[in-house]
């Protein structure tokens, strides 16, 4: 009996260990593969020059600019709306049926396949509103994708601010708005920013939405109404049309580095915040 227990225990441990190891190996393999194939191509010229020739040799500067532009613009659109909506949901709305429906809708919206969101963006912004294939159309469609994510993380951040800190403020004769704007939002800010950064990482890596709304034209956009090609779309074209596989891997590596950077800065912010409060 005792032996059986020991064997079961050892078996369970082995299974967990193998599962954990598999995750690490898969992640490591992907990173290593992209790194080995991409590092030879990654240099300053690749980052800062324009592509040329039929096979898009040279750099990917226009794609980097398009990606940053569309992501940045999407953040500018999303942040105020998502934060205000979250403040309303967490602080003002009567917690009842309507709020539950809004939350459910946001969660569902977050789960909509991005290609569906792309199609929607194509119909509404590119065609319907006549923005054409442009950074603006791309940013608007991306903001639809990011809105529920940012709203929900912001709401969680606001809810995580301890009740007794709010009471301290109310106890001094603060109104609700004074308490929210001077105490709750500043206290929640590090976590809100973390949510924004993670959403940015998601937007940088998004392909389906931008291919439908920003187009595929190699162009360094200046105005929001200019078209562009995101890094992910470029990667898709380079790889699937078999024109320039090394450029595809170089782009992939740069994308991974960017997303890693976003995730690391989010972690750093959270840690720093924990240290300051602890």
């Amino acid at each position: 009996m005792k032996d059986m227990k020991r064997i079961t225990n050892a078996l369970a441990l082995a299974v967990f260990w193998i599962a954990g190891l598999t995750t690490v190996v898969v992640l490591g393999a992907v990173i290593l593969y992209v790194f080995v194939n991409g590092i030879g191509h990654l240099n300053l010229a690749f980052i800062f020059t324009k592509p040329h020739g039929v096979n898009a040799e040279g750099g990917i500067w226009p794609m980097i600019v398009s990606t940053m532009y569309v992501t940045g613009l999407a953040m500018v659109i999303v942040t105020p709306i998502a934060v205000l909506a979250a403040v309303y949901l967490a602080e003002y709305a009567v917690q009842g049926r309507l709020v539950r429906i809004i939350r459910f809708a946001a969660d569902t919206l977050a789960g909509v396949p991005s290609i569906v969101m792309g199609l929607f963006g194509l119909a509404l912004f590119v065609e319907g509103m006549g923005f054409g294939f442009s950074v603006l159309s791309g940013a608007l469609a991306l903001s639809f994708l990011m809105l529920p994510i940012v709203m929900r993380t912001t709401e969680e951040a606001i809810r995580a601010v301890p009740k007794f800190i709010r009471w301290g403020s109310y106890g001094l004769g603060a109104t609700k708005w004074q308490t929210v704007s001077r105490i709750v939002l500043p206290a929640a800010m590090p976590r809100i920013i973390t949510g924004l950064i993670l959403a940015t990482g998601r937007a940088v890596g998004e392909t389906a939405v931008v291919i439908f709304t920003m187009g595929t034209m190699i162009n360094t956009p200046l105005l929001p109404t200019d078209p562009g090609r995101s890094m992910t779309v470029h990667l898709y074209q380079m790889a699937m049309e078999g024109i320039n596989l090394p450029a595809a891997f170089g782009t992939a590596l740069l994308l991974m580095v960017m997303i890693l950077f976003f995730n690391l800065s989010a972690r750093w912010l959270l840690r720093r915040n924990r240290r300051m409060q602890g």
Binding site: W167, G168, Y170, G171, L172, G173, R182, P186, Q277
Partner: peptide, 26 residues
């Protein structure tokens, strides 16, 4: 009313800001 009737709680609850700003808050 709460301006005239102050309250101290079981758990000390300074705001996450400087000592000066805590006192100057009210």
């Amino acid at each position: 009313l709460r301006r005239r009737i102050g309250m101290i709680f079981q758990q000390p609850n300074p705001f996450p800001m400087s000592i000066y700003d805590n006192v100057a808050y009210g």
